[in-house]
Amino acid sequence: MRLFNRIWSRTFSYIILLAFTAFFVVPVIWLLFAPFKTDHNLVFENPFALGTLGNLFHAAHVMFTFEDYALLNWLKNSAIYSFGGIAIALICSIPAGYGLAHTQFIGRRTLLGVTLFVMIMPATALVLPLFLEANAVHAVGTPLAVILPFSFFPFGVYLAYIFYSSSVPKDLLAAARIDGCNEWDVFRRIALPLARPIIALVTFFAFVANWNNFFLPFVMLPNSSNYPLPIGLQDLLSATPAFNPGQGGQVPIYRPELAIATIVAMAPVMIVFLFAQRSLVSGLLAGATKE
């Protein structure tokens, strides 16, 4: 009876898990298949029918050459904003995490507390205030209006702080000081080389956040030539007759082309995910895994 129960509940678990697998995966598979088909195929054929390479090349050609390679320009913008933000965030947050963990100064605890607060608060809450600020100094429309707010990444400081305070013993640093290192040398020669895993982690989280950010660039960058990919997608959506046959102008952007643009927008994050797979499923919860 007991055994029967266990088998039954296990089967039940797997049925549920497989059902949710379908829920999570089918949209991704559909998206990857869509560019191989024509808009007509998408409507009148089996949703999982295979398309042709010819369709893919046609849709890709239309999408990439659209408005003088706008998609590639958005991709370039996204890369500049994301990595510009990450670079400054790393330069500032790694030393800050180290300083908070291993040096004493007045206001240290306050700074830690404030960091915790701004880290938990959703970044979106500050977007309009940031716009008002940027507007006051006439910075709206410049790439820096996006890159600089991106570079303020308190979560990165917190991750670096946790890393340095839990994984780098004070004695190690004290030993270096006795050997004649000054504070800067201790950081540069001991703490910084140890920080490799935390640099990877901060880069990962900052990249996903920056790449997918919509609201901030949406208010800061009014010109199409400055758009990052997410705003570009919205631009395509408003121009395409794909969802509303009556709406939109004469643009030749239909569902296969839109699917390509969506794939281009998500591909970099997806690639990062695949590379980070192992640490993602096990160690996303830094410090909370059982050792």
């Binding site: 040096t103 700074l111 303020f152």
Partner: peptide
Amino acid sequence: KKGVAGYAFVSGYFVLLILFGVLPA
């Protein structure tokens, strides 16, 4: 000395915190 070093380590982040966290709010 450590106190001064501490300020130096957090200075970059502190500036960002003021400019893009505290000031806009």
